[in-house]
Design a binder for these strands. Sequence first.
DNA 1: TTAATCTCTATAGCAACTAGAGCTTCAAGA
DNA 2: TCTTGAAGCTCTAGTTGCTATAGAGATTAA
Lengths: 140, 140
Amino acid sequence: MLSIGKLGQAAGVKVPTIRYYEQIGLLPPPDRSAGNQRLYPRAALERLSFIRHARELGFPLEAIRDLLSLSDRPDHPCEAVDDIARAQLEATRARIARLRALEAELERMLAQCASGRVSDCRVIESLGNHALCTHHVEAV
Amino acid sequence: MLSIGKLGQAAGVKVPTIRYYEQIGLLPPPDRSAGNQRLYPRAALERLSFIRHARELGFPLEAIRDLLSLSDRPDHPCEAVDDIARAQLEATRARIARLRALEAELERMLAQCASGRVSDCRVIESLGNHALCTHHVEAV
DNA sequence: TTAATCTCTATAGCAACTAGAGCTTCAAGA
DNA sequence: TCTTGAAGCTCTAGTTGCTATAGAGATTAA
């Protein structure tokens, strides 16, 4: 059995985060020692590692909740799993596209600025006047 | 003079957001009508548009606060402005790089999945076993 | 005048944690 | 066995950038 600290270290997740995951029902409440400290079985490490990895890949906790409940049903078809992953891929691509537009806009602003006085600054000017934008970015 | 609703419409910012900006000191508190409603001068529209555009470009509010106070000093050199914009560009590029690694990982997971049973699902397997990763992504 | 719309304040909520206060338990060394 | 320091406990509040809601008052158009 693992203490919460050992579990956190093994999975690369901070202790308060583990307690938070328990609080929101992503990890089942483990048994406690005589002194009321959490004691985790090996299986908890697998589950927590799964969560951590999915978080690293940008899956929101709600998606992870779904993935976990799907992974508990090994005989079911895995279409739902793929759907969640595809949605995450789509979201990732959309974020990349937006960020690239931002990158281009920032580069343009900086390239035009001669670094003189604030009154001549193209960065300030560009920010104040949306019409100067080349890319017209929508919401970030 | 503009009501808060007109101002919001003109700048493309929601009314509660304007009040929020005032609350955190990003917009100065305007004069009020006899009935205690906010009345904005034209200048407020410029300032709010500036904020909105900077937000669209991903600048955090704290950076925008700095940009605004710099833009109020037209005679100063604009290096500090450029620094903030460059920092934002760097942050944007870093996010793009991370997201591209995520994209590749998600694509790989999905490509390997034959869409059969959950028990054979490569997506689930990849999430559970970090060692299967090609890219070993660090924190998102 | 009346109805519709707008605005006011204040509070609470979102994601996904993080930090801190104030306490208890545990493990290891003297 | 005692002591000390690390690790654990619960609870609350803070982070960012808003958004939503409630219940009241102000303004405007017909």
